[in-house]
Write a protein that binds this DNA or RNA. Structure first.
Lengths: 283, 283
DNA sequence: CCGATATATGTAGCAAAATTACAGTATTTC
DNA sequence: GAAATACTGTAATTTTGCTACATATATCGG
């Protein structure tokens, strides 16, 4: 919790002298963080150890540590919290909230991601004969994005967002082929079936989905992320963002694994689409 | 400016030893603020005064003052700096870097976005007879995502990622129709042509693209975001993320504008796809 | 290429700040 | 009202950060 709020809240539990300290700090926190313990003690008209004890009472290691905590809580409000959009939010408010929630979600996703699995996934991908990305509904855009990224590596790669095509492609796959399934919930029936089918054909299945979901159980490798999501009214957006970043991580890992000579390829692809653009003016 | 970014930005202006300090701090700012000057000096393998000088160079009064500033910048806006992936980064390193860069970009995008224009865009969208989302290449996934979101509002909406279809659809559009064009650079020839064509047919053109680009000049409404991007080797990912969030913002604005009765619709759509999923087990 | 100047880095001693131990004072409780 | 407990302050100790100076490294003009 915010340190400043904490002080406010526990005003009652302080002793007489400690409250003096609290009041001085609350009156002017900015001054407080730029003062020494001696200066603060003088302002509150107490002794230095009292200030120190005050800090300890707030679960800090001492005065310097306390100042650090206070400084953090002074820095503009609480930043990346999952703030919900209200009925009566103006454009300014809901824009900020959505951007900030998105960032908060990415943060959560990042820390829940297992990098060991990422590494193994990259391993599998680099050794694949053919890579297929499958997604349905909202997840299909992630699959498309993945196609776009891996296409540039100049390896056989495909993407389907159609149940039938997925099924057909799956039947034709075999050992050495990697199928990447993308589903937020991991409960979309047809994708789970695809996973089973693929494994029966000895293809490797990597899924970007929820932990412990039916799809996860049918996969060889599961890349799961815990993303706080309010799916009630506003759309399941956060998980998609996280998945996109994850795809980027995989593509980056792929590039790194393949080494420098490979990066030349990317430049070539870039050059080749240059002609379809207006040249950037030289200011 | 954010202290952490400041360090990142002025990396070049530091001397050899000072850079060592900078790197140690960037690698783990949280550790840095909880260390003494001696500990930090040891970590960076430099002398204590060097650390002190480093602090002074960043316009702080000294080490404790520097820690305060750093602490604030960690709590405050962006704890995330745009860190580039290195050749020899392990899975752990590049995963963190990509996630953090993504967050930093979203933050930058957020602050460069003009909410007034957002509001007007929402206005236009709510009054549209038909909404079309066009994108090419990487941007097509954003268009698809937009389709997915706006489709649930139960209004005529379409999406094309093919030049011909875009052109054909464009010719059939007229007053009251809104065309949303998505292009990171705003220099893709065919999209610029589409914009011109659409306006000739009295359709309204909203573009999610770069400021002052050819596409921007041909549009009625421009939603531009400044996103720092290293397009050299790794893919133009950040802008897409930002665009996705922006689409989410638009969809949210749309929902809010339409009011509560409308939100019921979303729930209905959600229910209708329930059957295609495995039920979540009740733990 | 060399010496001279400027710049960068480290060492050692010093000043200050924070913490601890201890002692005195107020407060509570029986 | 006395003993116990909790609170607060003084003084000593330790830690921390800073300054002055010395050494090393780099830069530049001749």
């Amino acid at each position: 919790m915010n340190t400043l709020e904490k002080i406010q809240k526990s005003l009652d539990s302080f002793s007489k002298s400690e409250r003096k300290v609290a009041e001085v700090i609350l009156a002017s926190p900015q001054t407080a963080i730029h003062s020494s313990i001696a200066a603060l003690a003088k302002m509150a008209d107490v002794s230095e150890p009292t200030v120190n004890r005050f800090c300890r009472r707030l679960d800090t290691k001492g005065f310097p540590d306390f100042k650090l905590h206070l400084a953090q809580s002074l820095a503009n409000g609480t930043p990346y919290v999952n703030r919900h959009v209200d009925e009566d939010d103006g454009p300014d408010a809901y824009t900020s909230k959505i951007f900030e929630s998105s960032m908060a979600c990415l943060d959560a996703a990042k820390s829940s991601l297992d990098t060991q699995t990422v590494n193994r996934a990259v391993d599998v991908l680099t050794q694949a004969n053919k890579i297929s990305f499958f997604g349905l509904g909202a997840s299909s855009s992630v699959a498309h994005d993945a196609l776009n990224k891996f296409f540039r590596f100049n390896i056989p790669v495909q993407c389907f967002d159609d149940i039938l095509m997925q099924r057909m492609s799956c039947i034709n796959s075999g050992e050495g082929d990697v199928i990447v399934l993308i589903s937020h919930t991991g409960r979309t029936k047809s994708l789970v079936e695809i996973a089973t089918l693929a494994r029966e054909n000895d293809a490797t299945v990597i899924s970007l989905t929820a932990k412990d979901s039916p799809l996860a159980r049918e996969s060889n490798l599961v890349l799961s992320m815990d993303v706080p999501e309010d799916t009630d009214i506003y759309m399941p957006m956060a998980s998609r963002l996280a998945q996109l970043v994850l795809v980027d991580v995989l593509a980056t890992g792929f590039t790194l694994r393949r080494g420098i000579k490979f990066r030349e390829n990317l430049k070539k692809v870039k050059e080749s689409i240059k002609d379809s653009r207006f040249e950037k003016p030289n200011f």
